[in-house]
Amino acid sequence: MITLQINGQPHDVDVSPDTPLLWALRDALGMTGTKYGCGIAQCGACTVHLDGQAVRSCQLPIGSVGSRAITTIEGVGSTDAGAKIQKAWLDLEVIQCGYCQSGQIMSAAALLAQKASPNDDDIDAAMAGNICRCGTYVRIRAAIKKAAAA
């Protein structure tokens, strides 16, 4: 049994320690907001925060997490940056199919928490790991700037 600190709450999971956090969240805990996209850290759909840093949960075995704080899309709205990003996402209607957007929002929230006024290069650096097949990039960029100005 491994205990994970997710969105401020302890959760016990009874799966093998090499299980990536992604699958522990989705299959063992039923927290399906974090998405599987590629399994090789190429698409960013599975992005969560580990002690505030954006990480790819498909590459993070739960045995290596320890007591570090995990934030997922279900909980990011309770952070200041997360709430601003979510609001900007809706204000500018960023989302289309939405499948990648959990990861996009997690990457953007981590960026905003670390840089209050990110410029285009900061946005490229923080967000280029997140693929959006619907092509919402133009609005993602605008929404991050809007959230930063809020």
């Binding site: 989705r26 907001g33 279900e74 709205g77 809706l90 957007q101």
Partner: peptide, 21 residues
């Protein structure tokens, strides 16, 4: 008009087929 489906897509509530449990 604001989209009806997008609020639940910002906080992980939306269920896709892959989320069926």
């Amino acid at each position: 008009v604001k989209r009806k489906d997008t609020p639940d897509k910002t906080d992980g509530k939306t269920q896709y087929g892959i989320d069926a449990m």
